[in-house]
Amino acid sequence: MNTTTPSKLEKILAEGHLAVTSECGPPRSTDLDIVAEKAELIKDHVDAINITDNQTSVVRLCSLASCIRIKQMGLEPVLQMVTRDRNRIAIQSDILGAASFGINNILCLTGDHQQFGDHPSAANVFDLDSTQLIQTVKLMRDEGKLLGGFEMKKRPEMFIGAAANPFADPYEIRVSRLAKKVAAGCQFIQTQCIYNMEKFKDWMKRIRDRGLHEKVAILAGLTPMKNVGMARYMKNRVPGIDVPDDIVERLAAVPKEKQADEGIKICIEQIEELKEEEGIKGFHIMAIEWEEKVPEIVERAGLYPRPNLNGSQN
């Protein structure tokens, strides 16, 4: 498989390895060292690190600065970008800025509504949506053009990703929605965190029926549960997350001090099971404020050591 960019993530996928990615949330302050410390914890166990973009609409140190920092540590960042806060002028400007620092991966998102965050009275932008952001990056990369038509001399070389949530409604449109993102130019997908394996596998089957798994690399999203409280919270309070009762019950059945271990165990079992699922090209492990557990999960799931790319600068 030919690669379209210098992205290490793209290369790993092209060589047929199961990719492993994870993410770091920047702090609500200027302390960029926090990002570096989190990245340090997981760097040997993942191929690329997503940096979230003001996730849940809470103001944080920007994704771009954090990506630059971890790029300078010799790591592989994935710039997450939401269309909620920036119009097409700011978006393209940030893409050029990121590319100028050698950032080669972008995850195109619309973003949570600002009412969930710490500035609910903010105006939102939504000049583009996630699909149009994908189109924009592709246009910049493949045609060397800005949306306004200007032709640039040096193009951003970005491996283009997006999110998919098989658990949101209406269910039947979720495959079409992915097909649309692929048509727009999306090359990899990181899914919403999976707990309902049955539903996820049904979605994957529909993806395969359409041959979409051959056109886009699907990384299964996983978030280990820290305790039963977290499982209940995600089940009842977080829109678009589907936590089946048996997960809640399984966590509730073990003593409190063992629940974290049980959460990790569930996560590892899921990875083992999904390795067998045709079309799964890797895993995106989102251990929220629990980054130190990522190495253990990766090792116990048999995904360690990570491939060492010959000739790659990283």
Binding site: D112, H113, F126, A168, R177, K180, G240
Partner: peptide, 17 residues
């Protein structure tokens, strides 16, 4: 979110996130 390309991942049982 005035999306033009389909529902976001927050759509649940017919309701907006």
């Amino acid at each position: 979110k005035r999306m033009l390309n389909g529902p976001c991942g927050g759509s649940e049982k017919g309701s907006c996130e």
